[in-house]
């Protein structure tokens, strides 16, 4: 009996798989389909970017936005997403690149099939995409973090530590590399430890506490993942060291408002995430419609006005520093 069932099922399956493929037919609506791939879905930073992207697709009217990505930030799963969208025959894929090496082949394959590929938030190899919507390079971020810390410390001296995401996080490793380069400029600033927090706020909290105990002279902590930042700030606050041990990092202003107001955190570094999402969708659409071509030096955005293009980088502008004085003006 089961053998007969097996045979019947196999035949059904073959029939199902060989039935006329309709993959090549474009989406019915005639809209430009733009896929936005975050490094990690489900974190406030990318959720906030997607809000901006959603707004852009509404404003433009002829764009259909897809927002999806790995919930664990794995590069392999990000590559699978690109392959999937390519197979579906979408128009544009916008990639926030987790790991240039791991995504390169999928991105090249997508381009070979006529999909327009751009990067946003984090760049990939130049030959795997047409434009990079650049809000900040790793160099800008790394240098910016160190400069901010040096400025907040006043005399730019003392022991500092880094609490990073995980030791394999490609972006954070890139930032750390540039942070170390920049620290050469401040000879009195000494990096004593780099510790992982594995995207776990509690671990970031515990680790920061241990760091303060182990290095009593610690003066500053760079908490360079969105989850590590509030964890580290909380540890410093509870130890009663607000203002004595400084902490800085990248985070959306809403998540850090309370810490900035009570003085635990002096400066938060970030860009306008919604604008980044908005601009990415606009660039993607313009590229698909042929309105934006290689060699352009300027791009007209609905929300941001004229935006500069340097080489193949569409520039969002410099990162912002949120402090006690201006953080209330922002809501994202």
């Amino acid at each position: 009996m089961s053998r007969a069932l097996l045979l019947a099922s196999l035949m059904l399956l073959t029939w199902a798989c060989t039935s006329p493929p309709s993959a090549d037919k474009k989406e019915k609506s005639g809209k430009t389909v733009i896929c936005l791939l975050p490094k990690k879905k489900g974190v406030p930073y990318f959720t906030s970017c997607s809000v901006g992207a959603e707004a852009a697709s509404k404003d433009l009217g002829d764009v259909e936005l897809r927002y999806d990505g790995p919930t664990d930030g794995s590069a392999e799963k990000a590559a699978e997403m690109i392959e999937k969208w390519t197979a579906k025959g979408v128009d544009v894929i916008a990639v926030s690149c987790n790991d240039p090496g791991a995504l390169a082949s999928a991105m090249r394959a997508a381009r070979a099939k006529g999909v327009k590929v751009v990067t946003w938030d984090a760049d990939a190899d130049a030959d795997t995409r047409e434009f990079f919507v650049n809000q900040a390079t790793p160099e800008q971020i790394g240098f910016g973090l160190v400069d901010t810390m040096a400025k907040d410390l006043g005399d730019a001296s003392g022991e500092v530590a880094i609490v990073t995401a995980s030791l394999t996080a490609a972006n954070q490793n890139e930032w750390i590399k540039h942070m170390k380069i920049r620290m050469a400029k401040y000879p009195n600033l000494r990096l004593v430890a780099v510790k992982p927090s594995n995207e776990d706020q509690k671990l970031a909290f515990d680790t920061t506490r241990d760091l303060m105990g182990a290095y009593p002279n610690l003066r500053g902590v760079f908490a360079i993942s969105s989850v590590a930042f509030p964890g580290a700030a909380e540890a410093i606050k509870q130890a009663g060291k607000s203002g004595k041990v400084l902490v800085t990092g990248l985070a959306t202003p809403n998540d850090m408002k309370a810490f900035v107001k009570d003085g635990t955190v002096t400066s938060v570094l970030l860009w306008k995430t919604e604008d980044l999402g908005y601009l990415t969708v606009e660039v993607g659409r313009a590229l698909a419609k042929g309105e934006l071509k290689a060699g352009a030096t300027e791009f007209e955005s609905r929300r941001l006005g004229k935006v500069k293009i340097a080489g193949d980088n569409v520039l969002l502008g410099d990162p912002m520093v949120f402090t006690k004085d201006n953080i209330d003006q922002f809501d994202f």
């Binding site: 199902a16 798989c17 039935s19 493929p21 309709s22 993959a23 037919k25 197979a87 579906k88 025959g89």
Partner: peptide, 8 residues
């Protein structure tokens, strides 16, 4: 239907 195509 596109999901079932052999290519995909």
């Amino acid at each position: 239907p596109a999901f079932l195509s052999l290519g995909a």
